[in-house]
Nucleic acid binder design. Structure first.
Lengths: 237, 237
DNA sequence: ATTGTTTTTGACCAATTGGTCAAGGCCACG
DNA sequence: CGTGGCCTTGACCAATTGGTCAAAAACAAT
């Protein structure tokens, strides 16, 4: 789905092999044929690519793209920098891979919104699921936050295509519910935005939330009950 | 108020003069006495410092601290890089100055929350004001977003002191209103968070909002009416 | 004009950083 | 137990970047 999200989705590199950035390809020719189509194959390749992506998630989500360095990622992954570049052709390729890989799972809660269910229950469940993701995957949330705050230089088209498509689809369902009088009449798009904003806030602005709340308060459980009330009242027909 | 927010608030540099970073101070001694206490003095100093801060706001808000370079800022400001460093001792000093300077104005809408006014009206007005700031000062919003998403490395104490103090104070007012039954019973802190999240979302995630909404829809006015409804329903006693 | 002070900048520097390479290590398989 | 191909890395590069400096402009006040 989000496969070609980035204009430059790096050619699924097995061991990235000849850069294929076009530049002088030395001699190793026969390989490329094999590489070109196959994702990681050996046990060790799978493991290392995963290790790298996990380390990169940690580092990118904490420092943003420019703030992260290959050395940090290598250190976090317990690999050498050249070794990183054996599995991915560039820093940007790691970032892009991460972004597109996460996008999918990130939108799962919205995909699960079921036109057949009880409207208010469906939406409250969606809020709950999103909040759980903020609790369980804050790094993923921050990865996106970093990217989008800075203008989504590597995701713009994905937003305007994949994301927009999904949201429009679900917005139509919500609009249907509203028009049927099964929930209050609210703009579906902004309803979805409000769910994103409210739930992701607890991941992206965690330090702020904690600083203001002070020690001894656990943001997420409190947020869960607050948001449940909020949406219950907002949506009641 | 937010004066000493950063542990290393650069010594208010007139022309930053002798770095005072302690290192070898060459010969120019008498100056330092004069500089030490006085903010920019001459006409031109005021103007240039402002120019630099405005350029820096543009660049930092768009690329984050590490993503921004002195060259970018210099270009944006129409000054040479060494000239930048004549007015500010370092890149970080520019960033910190910007942050603390903006913090003040950023919190003005909250300060304006008046215990004496009509509770629901006060809060709706607060939402409106915050949304206006997202519309009129998106750069400032993104500057903070960048900083906080990355763990607020240069603001942590400001959050835990200045910000927390103000929020606690206003939260107390809101709690009073709730206990008096003048608004619905909601957690004041999370109410404030929700206002921040919802309004700043339209500045910080602008690209996403626009991408999903598609051409031809103007997010902010729509948001204004959506949020007005939302908080009206949430707060009604 | 003259002199002392502010501003401004071209030329540098050292450190960082993304990326390359060739050589060596390792492992599976014949 | 070779050996051919995967995997790993130390040593390097070139570009970028924050920051320095000394000297040149501007400017101000006499």
């Amino acid at each position: 789905m989000t496969r070609q999200m980035m204009h430059n989705q790096a050619p699924p590199p097995g061991p990235c092999a000849a850069r294929e950035t076009g530049l002088r390809a030395p001699a190793r020719a026969g390989l490329m044929a094999l590489m070109a189509s196959s994702r990681p194959r050996t046990r060790i390749q799978m493991k290392n690519r995963e290790t790298i992506l996990d380390a990169a998630l940690e580092v990118f989500s904490q420092h943003g793209f420019r703030g992260a360095t290959l050395d940090m990622i290598a250190a976090e992954a317990g690999l050498s920098k050249p070794n990183l570049l054996y599995y991915f052709p560039s820093k940007e390729a790691i970032h892009v891979t991460l972004l597109s890989q996460m996008m999918d799972t990130w939108l799962d809660p919205l995909r699960a919104l079921d036109a057949g269910g009880d409207p208010v229950e469906e939406l409250r469940a969606y809020v709950r699921r999103k909040l759980e993701m903020s609790r369980d995957f804050p790094r993923e949330s921050r990865l996106f936050a970093n990217e989008i705050v800075q203008g989504a230089p590597r995701m713009q088209d994905a937003l305007a295509t994949d994301l927009k498509t999904l949201v429009d689809e679900k917005a139509a369902i919500i609009r249907g519910w509203a028009e049927a009088g099964r929930i209050a009449a609210v703009d579906p798009h902004h309803l979805i935005f409000s769910i994103w904003a409210l739930t992701q806030h607890y991941a992206d602005f965690d330090v702020q939330v904690r600083a203001v709340l002070g020690e001894g308060r656990d943001p997420i459980p409190e947020a869960e009950s607050f948001l449940d009330t909020l949406f219950a009242r907002l949506l009641a027909p």
